[in-house]
């Protein structure tokens, strides 16, 4: 498997940031960065990462299945993550999530047919004081009302 030159550079730098013999440390970041490019953790990617870090594939599987941001199936181009944890819930995040389901026609962890959007109800994302909060891919949006949510989605649709 080959990655883009930029990613290869990033991975080389990543692996170099751990002491010699401790390259396995790069596993989680490596999966995160490669997932961003490949779209999800495919079986080939597991093999590739195992090969590069010189570890048995089962050790990669162990890790992939543990972390909630690592996905076996591709998410949408825009992965909408709505926090419904306690601080956001107190600002009606549950209703926001329901609204998002309606708006996108998707449920938890579902991907739209055209692959543009996916929706996920997530745990606290560290935006509790500016609740309710969502993340579109890695971008934060704070104080999200249903109206604001619609605007965000509509503007993403326009970008396409």
């Amino acid at each position: 498997m080959t990655f883009s030159p930029e990613l290869e550079k990033k991975l080389a730098k990543l692996i170099a940031s751990y002491p010699p013999g401790k390259e396995k440390s790069a596993l989680v970041p490596m999966l995160m960065f490669t997932q961003d490019e490949v779209g999800c953790i495919t079986p080939e990617l597991v093999q590739e990462v195992a090969k590069r870090l010189n570890i048995p594939p089962v050790q990669v599987d162990e890790v992939v299945s543990y972390y909630s941001m690592l996905h076996r199936k591709p998410m949408g181009k825009y992965h909408i993550q709505i926090c419904t944890n306690i601080s956001c819930l107190l600002w009606d995040a549950d209703k926001l999530f329901e609204h998002a389901c309606q708006k996108l026609g998707l449920g938890h962890k579902q991907v739209s047919a055209d692959g543009q959007f996916s929706l996920e109800e997530v745990e606290c994302i560290g935006a509790c004081s500016w609740a309710p909060a969502i993340q579109v891919n890695y971008d934060f949006h704070h104080h999200v009302t249903p109206e604001k949510f619609d605007q965000i989605i509509d503007s993403l649709k326009k970008v396409q």
């Binding site: 050790q59 162990e62 909630s68």
Partner: peptide, 8 residues
Amino acid sequence: GALGIVNR
């Protein structure tokens, strides 16, 4: 080392 643990 043929066995591992998956999921959470």
